[in-house]
């Protein structure tokens, strides 16, 4: 996936990117909370052309028994890409990629949700990607955090999903589809905006330590911008009264 360096031009002569963004500029983001009437909590996030919807059910009795933990709740995350979310249709069903993303997302969320409040129970988090344009795992984490807050699940902080990467040797914030396909590195992170901790961290490609530091700086900047939108979405939904 990485390593197409040189074949495809991703930066304009004036240093801007193909879609006109500056290197440290993210795509436009829109967030709504409380969008699914049947779920206990839900959120809708549009990030660039990505569209993700997250639903939360629970806490509920954990079945089957063997998944129960006597001292805390388990968070059961399913990240799923709709068949029509990518340019080539995806065959429905779990695959290795979605299983891995579901696992690390669940573990990230378990580090902020006060799971010890609900021993033996289960909190179901369903992340559905309806349209994918690079960076869906991050959009999914953002959506899941807002949906958990909307469901009244206690958390010590939310998690913001953000990513930076490298194209043509230049570190840029928030890779779009072409940049993801032909770039040299991708650094997705889940950041706790209030404490600055990282609950989710992946990376692939090739980054020097200096490049990593810059990408990291971009991610933290983007996280605080997205955090404001997450808060606003929740406050809007709370004051509407039907959260």
């Amino acid at each position: 996936m990485m390593g197409g360096y040189g074949d495809i031009k991703l930066l304009n002569d004036d240093g801007t990117r193909l879609d006109g963004r500056a290197v440290d500029e993210m795509r436009s983001v829109e967030i709504k909370a409380g969008v699914l009437p049947v779920a206990d909590g839900s959120a809708w996030v549009k990030h660039g052309l990505n569209v993700a919807v997250a639903a939360v059910y629970g806490p509920m009795e954990a079945h089957p028994r063997k998944i129960q933990r006597q001292d805390r709740a388990v968070i059961d995350v399913r990240y799923n890409m709709a068949p029509f979310s990518t340019s080539d249709r995806i065959r429905p069903g779990f695959n290795r990629r979605s299983r891995e993303i579901s696992k690390v997302t669940a573990e990230a969320l378990e580090s902020v949700v006060l799971v010890e409040r609900y021993p033996r129970s289960k909190i179901r988090v369903e992340i559905e990607i309806l349209a994918a344009e690079a960076g869906t795992r991050c959009v999914g984490i953002t959506a899941a955090s807002v949906a958990l807050a909307d469901a009244g699940i206690p958390m010590r902080d939310m998690i913001v999903g953000v990513a930076s990467g490298k194209i043509e040797g230049v570190v840029v914030l928030d890779l779009d589809k072409a940049e993801d396909n032909y770039g040299q590195a991708d650094l997705p992170m889940g950041i706790l905006p209030n404490t600055g901790e990282m609950a989710f961290l992946q990376m692939d490609g090739d980054l020097s330590i200096e490049e990593y530091n810059l990408a990291c700086e971009y991610n933290y900047k983007a996280a605080s911008e997205i955090h404001e939108l997450m808060k606003q979405a929740l406050l809007d939904s709370a004051s509407r009264g039907d959260a």
Binding site: L36, R78, P92
Partner: peptide
């Protein structure tokens, strides 16, 4: 194709 995924209802 149709999938009644767990997102849609408990």
């Amino acid at each position: 194709g149709a999938e009644l995924r767990p997102v849609a209802h408990r």
